[in-house]
Design a protein around this nucleic acid. Sequence first.
DNA 1: TATGATACGGAGGACCCCGCCACTTAGCAA
DNA 2: TTGCTAAGTGGCGGGGTCCTCCGTATCATA
Lengths: 183, 183
Amino acid sequence: MTSQRADARRNYARILAVAEQEVAAHGADASLERIARVAGVGSATVRRHFPGRRALLEAVFGERIAALVARAAELTDATDARAALLEWLGALTTYAASARGVADALVQDGLTGPEEVEDCSAKLATAVEPLVRRAAATGGLAADVTAADLLTLVTGIALATEHHPAEARRLLGLVVAGVSPAH
Amino acid sequence: MTSQRADARRNYARILAVAEQEVAAHGADASLERIARVAGVGSATVRRHFPGRRALLEAVFGERIAALVARAAELTDATDARAALLEWLGALTTYAASARGVADALVQDGLTGPEEVEDCSAKLATAVEPLVRRAAATGGLAADVTAADLLTLVTGIALATEHHPAEARRLLGLVVAGVSPAH
DNA sequence: TATGATACGGAGGACCCCGCCACTTAGCAA
DNA sequence: TTGCTAAGTGGCGGGGTCCTCCGTATCATA
């Protein structure tokens, strides 16, 4: 861990910084080769620090994901459980719609299987779980809705509105209220 | 049109047949090169008949899209407007979740702009439009929901459940009923 | 059958991801 | 301070894709 060499740490930081820009500019399938060039390192170095595109994306989004997890923890104590959940979902939607590639990363997360506990969607799911439980307990959430369902829906909205990010929040509103609630 | 040479027509059919298999197997980013190889034609020929991946995907999905458009026309006369709309959305969801790549194709459709009337999502939007209007008129649909919204939501569900297609129908149900309808 | 239009397909360029390998260098020990 | 060693590095080559150009084969017509 800390035994990592100083230059390695330096390169790690440089690559990550460039990767953030590139992913923001070109989405989840930004060119790793290009990231290496811009960062002034060899392509092998990028691959060493981040084995595979997934690893790089997770690192890029890690901070924001952590922020969302923290936000969820704060909201756990809110008086209105339903409002807390909705606010968190809104924050997630805004982020997923604005940060190109994050939604792709989330939908790909399911592939690795349950042993991979470190992936982004697992972190998020664990984080909302308490909010979901509280909202469900107070009747603020349909009974058969799981945390995973909500993440999937938000991810889907973000993916489908890739070219119209402004619509994302509105669509979330529709999903929450119901497109055609039973009368 | 009919002045197309016989060999060109033959190749078109061969390519389309192979493309259907390849897209079903590898999703929207199937290799055009590979399609050409399997079809026994040069890569330039594929490109000639289908300029760009979008064109190829549209051709591949064209028949099913047409079937959905026809289904919408049938359902326009149904007595229960809301049920008709929901049935059509269910059919669309099932198809989008089962046919790999179709959702990607739909979300990419928005890029070309309004002048391109031939694209899949425009066809579908035009087809559901009457169903949406009737459902809204009879109170079976939230007032501020457009046909495009519904397509976007279904597309999103399909994209987000790429690795768990079985969930798609259930999520559609949640969206219809509302995850957390106002009390 | 001869001929012009049409469609074909391979070569080649640009880009990408990935694995391998010889070289450099940071950080520790004497 | 001076070596030593392993971690870290970058470049090269292989395999793949997309795309364009252009000489050539093939079809339709007179």
